[in-house]
Design a protein around this nucleic acid. Structure first.
Lengths: 221, 221
DNA sequence: CCGCAAAGTTGTCATTGACAACATTGGGGC
DNA sequence: GCCCCAATGTTGTCAATGACAACTTTGCGG
């Protein structure tokens, strides 16, 4: 009864996520994980062939949740395509802060280098999801003269960079004054995404109704 | 004569940069570096107390070159502040592709965690350089109603995300169709930065003169 | 009820970062 | 001109880690 752990695989993933969130992916050690869970140093091998396999599993799980998270946020938004796209952008950044371990696993070079079919398929679903949303926003008039690939590259780059700037303790004191004075993270995300979507939108009404008429004003030509 | 290597410190940095560019920071090993240079495994200790110290040195050197690189690009641009800011954005992305080892070292979490005074000062100079350029662009009318912190966060996030998307082999097949058909990397950078700066700029004339009138048209309110 | 496969264990090896103790060399002070 | 010593490089060692091999325990299904 104490020999078979039962659900070691799941526990390993959970503990790994915890460690990654606390100390980063570099500090992850299979042996330390085993110690934390009170099993022998080689036990993880039964569930993950090597470190890359564990990270790949975490990334795959994370990528799927990422899709759900963003689709949920999109569906909760008004059905104006531009507002929907903005909601997805905000969700993208929020996911990276809410599930840092998933997000880091997804974006870790080592993981991408050892991707398998499932992970690649999930990545492709993510891509298609964003591509379709971008295309819909363009069809509604936003940046409609640009190539969709460029619009998507631009949007993803910005939210990705914002996620990086927000999560890394990185860039020491001075590089990025987050959370200054009276601005919460949510407000900052709101403003950043607004700059992607619609820099000319009226500042005063940028709450839930800010984009009510989006598609007929703002960044259109 | 063969005992004292002479300029081992410099050789170590160069070789480290090479390895990082080829195989990423994770694969960097002090012992492998020593082997490559034909010295004993402990020789690097004389120049860098530990791995973090080597990366810190690389990051500091890189940060200084980063500043020079961007300032040079800025000074070569027309003196319209917006065009200057765009030139800096493009230089930012190009630097990440031209000197991937420097760029990765600068942005590595482990490095930021062990920063010293020199590195922090260089990071601060980078920050100030960009901040001033953003402020000048705003003074010329671009996004002049936004907080400079937000404008800067937005700009940096986008170029940073673009750099990440362009350099990582990451996000397997399908996530990001770089270099499709007839588009070079330089053109892609051009289009991305144009989307930051001036989404309404005329598409036809986006060569060297594209932003000739920037600041009086385009993204202004 | 028992055998076999899943799951866990102990043991070992090569690699690595870090450190200590020792060796070599060349340049500056005398 | 010589010698000392500080800078630089070397050998040796240790603990941690990932990976692998060989063995053990357990419980489930025929």
């Amino acid at each position: 009864m104490s020999y078979h752990h039962g659900n070691l695989r799941q526990k390993l993933l959970e503990r790994a996520a915890h460690v990654i969130a606390e100390q980063g992916i570099e500090s992850l050690s299979l042996r330390a994980l085993a110690r934390d869970l009170g099993v022998s140093h080689a036990a993880p091998t039964r569930h993950f062939a090597d470190k890359a396999a564990l990270l790949r599993a975490l990334a795959t799980e994370g990528s799927d949740r990422f899709i759900d998270y963003i689709m949920t946020a999109a569906d909760e938004a008004k059905d104006d395509p531009l507002e929907r796209y903005a909601a997805m952008g905000k969700a993208y950044i929020r996911f990276s802060l809410t599930y840092p371990a998933y997000y880091r696993a997804i974006n870790h070079p080592e993981v991408a280098a050892h991707a398998d079919r499932k992970l690649n398929e999930s990545a492709e679903r993510r891509h298609d999801m964003i591509f379709e949303a971008a295309r819909a926003a363009q069809a509604a008039g936003w940046l409609s003269d640009e190539r969709t690939e460029d619009v998507m590259m631009f949007s993803i780059a910005t939210v990705r960079g914002a996620a990086a700037s927000l999560s890394d303790p990185l860039h020491g004191p001075g590089e990025m004054n987050l959370e200054d004075e009276d601005s919460t993270t949510d407000e900052l995300i709101e403003r950043i995404v607004r700059l992607i979507i619609d820099p000319a939108a009226p500042q005063k009404s940028r709450g839930r109704n800010a984009q009510k008429n989006a598609g007929t004003k703002g960044r259109n030509r």
